[in-house]
Design a binder for these strands. Sequence first.
DNA 1: TCGAGACTCT
Length: 467
Amino acid sequence: MKTPKPISPFRLSSLLRLQKDPNLALKLFQNPNPQHPKAHKPFRYSLLSYDLIVTKLGRVKMFDQMEQILQQMKQETRFDPPEILFCNVISFYGRARLPHRAVQMFDQMPSFRCQRTVKSFNSLLDALRRCGELPKVREIFMGMENYVNPDACTYNILIKACCVNGSLDDAWVVFDEMRRKGVRPNVVTFGTLIYGLCVDSRLKEAFKLKEDMKRIYGVKPNAFVYTSLIKGLCKIGELSLAFRLKEEMVTNKIELDAAVYSTLINALFKVGRKGEVSGNLEEMSVYGCKPDTVTYNAVINGFCKEKDFEAAFRILDEMVKNNCKPDIISYNVIIGGLCKEGKWIEANDLFEDLPRRGCSPDVVSYRTIFDGFCSWRRFKEAIFILEEMVFKGYGPYSASANKLLVGLCEEGNVEDLWKALNCLVNAKENVVDLDTWGLVISIVCKMDKLSNAFNLVDTLSALNAVN
DNA sequence: TCGAGACTCT
């Protein structure tokens, strides 16, 4: 058999682009020519292939492997890596809540022969904002003017930080400073401010700003601005005004997107107008926007609230058919709905089927199914789940844990009570309230030998140590 | 994926 031709650096990039599995992509990158072991000169990796593999690894949080590739890239002398690559790495760390590593990457950039502009500063600011490191955001912003000129993006990040923090007044201070420094606010600036106002239910001000942005600043509102306003109107039950706003988008030739419809569909279900949902879904295709996972999730949620699980499962099938992958939220909604109705067998079936469906349960899935078992007094099943979730580092809702303990006390089931307590000791935070403790102690003392009461004291001190 | 949103659980 003929040995295949060795892979060229150019070909490696296209193969990396096609490879969806990050582990396989990494293997491919590390050993592009398994058929030609060491017979050739060192492989001349292109900058593009570095960029592709770093992005792939960063997206799935394979940070150790990503750092290794970065070190390898540092040794390359044939090119200087572009700033955007590091901006991406910084933002991966921000999304993964690893502020230290974001700062580290920023600090190391010069050693990669890469100059830092306002873009890297912005990436770092946003990463720190996501991690809630607001004092650090402030500190870096104060210092950055010695190196670069803050741009609109910089101020937008600061405004966002204020809005998320619930301090809209501070957001206005930043907005004023932005204008004083001669930086023109753009559509993101206004979008962020309007979003903040809507979340705070200050709709009057939000609508005024929408007018001002056009009239005074010459910035046209976009779909993002409209969605915030529509959501704000839905929240106060003004659905007809919300729909009128959607019509205004059509009149003003602002492209409708799935988010607008997800918001409206969610609101329709909430006020019991589910009959209008399918009409809206049809209208979406008229405007050329396809429902996405969030839209479908809103529909699934609506059906579950109506206890129409058949319809909910039908939507799951429809998603698959329309090439729209259900995510963990889609499943959590159904599992939660089933649990609420006492259909814990069906809920557990779906829960256990998650891996086969290509979705791993998250902390919400565990808490939901655990609460379902506790509410319907399926204590054996609950303890089984509790063991698994604590092992994974997830903790239950406090109310569910208390339901379990109280239930076991009522049943006088000291053995299972013991098991549950041992699990809860290993949970990250103390979720058992004082009244429940009192009950547990009195039951154990009454039911069991004194020795267990001593053990219980040990358990209690272990919990206190955790606290 | 240098900056903004819509869907689940508290």
